[in-house]
Simulated scan of single mutants.
Amino acid sequence: MNIYLDLEGEIDPLIAGLKGSPDKVSKATKRALGKLAKFAERNVLREVSRQVGVTAKLIKELGRVRATLKKATNRDTGEYELVVWLGIFDIPAHKLGTPRQTRAGVRTGKHFWQGAFLFQPVNAPKAMVFKRAANWKHRQQRSRKSGRLMWIGLPIEKQSLPIYQQAETALANMEPLLLERFSTLLQQELNYAFNIESR
């Protein structure tokens, strides 16, 4: 999921009277954009964390938020674009905290998975949280470890936390804030370039 911000509408009024100093304007704009990318990434992380109910640290470790800047290829969209990318795949339950089995299910951090159990697939480094599907039945399956036939309730489904709706809300909430922040940053950088840096 991406949001694209057309920044030309924010730039034009601020640099309208500064056309005679393109180098200063260019440097100021570049610095403002760099600061905006860091601001965007940090604040989108916080907003997604708040909406989803998991730590910003976890979302960052999973690489779910990235902000990049680029010159727009389509003239109709403006000269500059800020692209905020947000990964919206469900977060696996075992990533949400140390899984703890209880009689009623599995707890991972603040989340509880009713009727779930811990199971470590052969190709997995640690146990994950699974739950039997609604249409499960006892079936015979050969163990990959021992080779023995076992009766297992199948199918089972890996449990995960859906974040699409929360992510969509988070990005919608952040868009006006990012535009406002860019206008502030550009004013600051233009002031620095013309009144302080040039001294």
Rank of each mutant, 00 (worst) to 15 (best):
G153Q: 15
P92E: 09
L186Q: 08
L18E: 09
G34S: 09
Q114G: 01
W85L: 03
E180R: 15
R64T: 04
V48S: 00
V106I: 10
K137L: 11
K70A: 14
Y80Q: 08
E61F: 07
K95E: 15
L69D: 05
K131Q: 11
E79H: 09
F89E: 13
A172K: 15
Y80N: 10
A72D: 10
A104H: 08
I11E: 11
F182H: 09
Q51G: 04
L45T: 00
L118A: 11
K145G: 00
R107N: 05
K35I: 01
G63L: 05
D12Y: 13
L36I: 07
V25K: 02
L33N: 08
P125C: 06
Q101Y: 04
G17E: 14
G105W: 01
D90K: 10
A28Q: 06
G147P: 04
M128E: 13
M1T: 08
S160M: 05
A40C: 03
N43Y: 08
V122D: 14
P92H: 09
K145Y: 11
G20I: 10
K126R: 15
T102D: 07
K60Y: 06
I15M: 11
D90Y: 02
K71Y: 02
V84D: 03
E8P: 01
D12L: 14
K158C: 06
L96A: 02
A56D: 13
R64G: 08
L45M: 01
L177H: 04
F130H: 02
D12H: 09
K35Y: 12
Q101W: 03
E157C: 02
F119E: 07
W113Q: 12
G147M: 06
A56E: 12
N173S: 13
K126I: 05
G87P: 01
K158D: 05
K70P: 01
A16E: 15
D76K: 14
F130I: 02
T108G: 03
L62M: 11
T55K: 15
S198F: 06
S146N: 10
I59W: 03
T77I: 08
A127K: 15
E47A: 04
R103Y: 06
K137G: 00
M150C: 10
L69F: 01
G17V: 09
G17L: 10
R31A: 12
F112H: 02
A124Y: 12
S160G: 13
G9R: 12
L45Y: 06
A193R: 04
N191W: 12
L154C: 05
A32T: 12
R31K: 12
G63W: 01
A72C: 02
R42W: 01
T77V: 13
V106E: 05
L45W: 00
A67L: 05
G87W: 03
K30S: 14
I156H: 04
K95C: 10
L36R: 03
I163P: 00
E180A: 15
R107F: 01
D76V: 09
F117M: 04
K95T: 09
T98E: 14
V106N: 03
E10M: 14
P155K: 12
T55H: 04
L14F: 08
F182R: 02
F182M: 03
T102Y: 05
K38I: 10
E175I: 09
L18P: 06
N135T: 07
H111S: 12
